[in-house]
Amino acid sequence: MAVEVKELLEAGVHFGHLTRKWDPNMAPYVYMERNGIHIINLYKTAAKIDEAGAALAKIAASGRKILFVATKKQAKDVVAEKAGGINMPYITERWPGGMLTNFVTIRKAVKKMASIDRMKKDGTFMTLSKKERLQVDRLRAKLEKNLGSISDMTRLPGALFVVDIKREHIAIKEAQKLNIPIFAMVDTNSDPRQVDYVIPANDDASKSIDKILTYVSSAIAEGLAERKAEKEASAAAKADGAKPKAEAKKAVAANEEEE
């Protein structure tokens, strides 16, 4: 999907923060100052979206997951919709401490959710007392709210995509410790040096977040489609390779019968 600067402009991606709140390290991405607000250079944003999109498509094509993180109100629904649409894990509630650095414990919690579901299916759940059932239901609801969106993430993600790196600083630190590549929308009040792939953009307006994530999710979808096509081609090649072998076996069997 080609990035259109006009579309970025219409979505308000160019509006940065108040000049007094800026981080000087964002200077290369600032176009000008207007009415005490920094204006982001959208041509640089477009170039960075292309760069990040290509890298994310490659990660998706390799079969690894990209974990989306956005707990601010304006971003929650957008991230849940876009990440969910391409079957990628996401965190939109509070970041669970140790989500990455203590991934084994997080996986245990996810498995607990699955075991409760099994109890309900096989009837074990109904053998519990009314009070116990209530407690289990509450636990299941809590786990679903915090971890339901990452239940398919069986190993550490191949990358992190963050909206607002200031707010999600704990997630950023955990990813840095584990050398997980970080992709992020970075506003003028944040330090871009914390991120591997910077997308300079307004990270407060839902329209801006929606526009950037539309481009990003489209790039990931292309990577997933490429992976699917490769798998199908590989399966077809194996099937074609098996045909001559089967035919050869048939011919040998026919010769033996004639003899």
Rank of each mutant, 00 (worst) to 15 (best):
K120G: 10
A2Y: 07
A75G: 11
K207F: 14
I40K: 08
A175R: 02
I86W: 00
V69F: 04
K142V: 13
A52P: 07
P89Y: 04
K108N: 10
G16R: 04
I209E: 07
Y43C: 05
L178G: 00
P28E: 12
K21G: 06
D152I: 06
L67N: 08
V186T: 03
I212E: 02
D204Y: 13
N255I: 15
E226K: 12
G223K: 02
L147G: 05
I165T: 14
A225I: 08
I86E: 01
Q194T: 10
D50C: 04
G84E: 07
L8M: 06
G98K: 06
V104T: 11
D196Q: 09
R94Y: 14
K245L: 15
A60T: 10
I59K: 06
G36N: 14
K76D: 10
I91Y: 08
K121V: 12
G63F: 14
E93D: 10
I172Q: 00
V30E: 03
K48A: 13
P192R: 05
K250C: 02
S218L: 02
K6V: 12
S190T: 13
Q135W: 03
L156K: 08
P157M: 10
V79G: 07
R193F: 04
V195N: 06
A54D: 12
E132I: 01
D196L: 03
M1H: 06
A254H: 06
A109Y: 11
A205H: 11
Y43N: 15
V5R: 08
P181H: 00
E174H: 09
W95K: 07
G36H: 01
M32W: 00
D117W: 05
G241D: 14
K120D: 10
E230D: 07
D210K: 13
P181W: 07
I86S: 04
A175P: 05
A171M: 03
A27W: 01
Q135P: 01
A242T: 02
T127H: 05
I59D: 03
D196M: 10
L42E: 15
W95M: 01
T124S: 15
E258V: 09
G98A: 08
A205R: 14
V162M: 04
A114T: 10
D240F: 01
E33L: 05
A114S: 10
G97V: 05
A83T: 09
A235K: 11
V162P: 01
T101Q: 13
D152N: 12
A233T: 04
